[in-house]
Nucleic acid binder design. Structure first.
Lengths: 125, 125
DNA sequence: TATCACGCATCATCTAATGTTACATGACAC
DNA sequence: GTGTCATGTAACATTAGATGATGCGTGATA
C-alpha cells in the first residue's frame, strides 16, 4: 500500500504515515519501495513480531501519563514523592511492556479476521 | 499558607494553585479561609489519607499515556487492538492506583523529614 | 522522459495545559 | 464603615508538543 492509501485508511496524511513507518522500516518490520508501483510491504514474520517490538521500533515512548519530575532535584517535597513512587511507575510500565510482548501481529490479524467475519454476518442478515 | 506563597514554592502562580486545591478542598483534605490572615490549611489526618485519595480528589485522570481509542468504533483494526489490550491497560492502571493507595501523606512527610535531615547534615559539613 | 512514490526538511495549524487578568465576595484591622 | 488582604471564578492569553501541510530531491517504472 502507498502512504497515501494508508493515510486515507487511518484518516491522517501521507507524511505522518511515512514518519511513523520510518521506525518500523529501520527495525526491518516493513520495507518501502520508491517509484511507480512502490509503497509499503510487510517484511517480517507476523508470528514472531509482537506489539512490544513495534513499541520499541517507535522509540519506546513513556507509557505513563504521569511520572517522575527530575527538573527540580533540589525540591525536597518532590524528592519525597519520587522516592515513594519510582518503583510503582517502573512496575506499571514493566507490566504493560510485558503484556505488549504477549500480543503477536499474527494474533492481531486473527482478531481482525474474526471481527470481520462477525461484521459480514451481521451485514448479510 | 496563602496561594501566592504556595505558588512561589512550586514555581507557578496563585490561580493555578487555587484551581488545583479546589479539588482537595471539596474532598475535605484542606480548608481555605478568605480575608486577612486567610489561606490554606491541612484539614485531614495525614495517617489516613493516601495518594490514591488525592488522585481521586483531583478527578482520577488517566494514568496512562496511551489507551483505547473509542472514536472510530467501526475500524476493525482498532477493534482488534482494543480487544487485545484493554485488559492490559486496566491491569496497569489498577496496579498504579494500588501503589498510590499504599502511600499515606504521613509517610510522605516522614520521607521529607528524613531527606531534610540529610540535607542539613551535608550543608553543615 | 513523464509519472509516481518515498525521504526529508521546513513551515503551519491545532489542542490541551498552563499562565494571566479582572472583578466579585468575604474576613479582619483600624 | 472603610481599607486591605485573600479566596472564587470567569474570561482571555500564552506556551509547548503533536499533528498536518508544502516543497523539493531522489529513485524506479512505463
Amino acid at each position: 500500500m502507498t502512504s497515501a492509501e494508508l493515510a486515507k485508511c487511518m484518516d491522517t496524511n501521507p507524511v505522518v504515515v511515512r514518519r511513523t513507518m520510518a521506525g518500523l522500516r529501520e527495525a526491518g518490520f516493513v520495507s518501502s519501495e520508491k517509484g511507480h508501483g512502490g509503497g509499503w510491504e510487510i517484511a517480517c514474520d507476523l508470528q514472531k513480531v509482537t506489539l512490544r517490538d513495534i513499541y520499541d521500533a517507535l522509540g519506546s515512548p513513556s507509557l505513563l501519563a504521569i511520572g517522575i519530575n527530575l527538573e527540580n532535584p533540589e525540591c525536597l517535597v518532590e524528592k519525597a514523592v519520587n522516592r515513594s513512587l519510582t518503583g510503582a511507575f517502573a512496575d506499571a510500565e514493566a507490566l504493560l511492556v510485558k503484556r505488549l510482548a504477549g500480543v503477536t501481529l499474527a494474533a492481531l490479524a486473527e482478531e481482525f479476521r474474526a471481527t470481520a467475519r462477525r461484521h459480514r454476518t451481521r451485514m448479510s442478515r
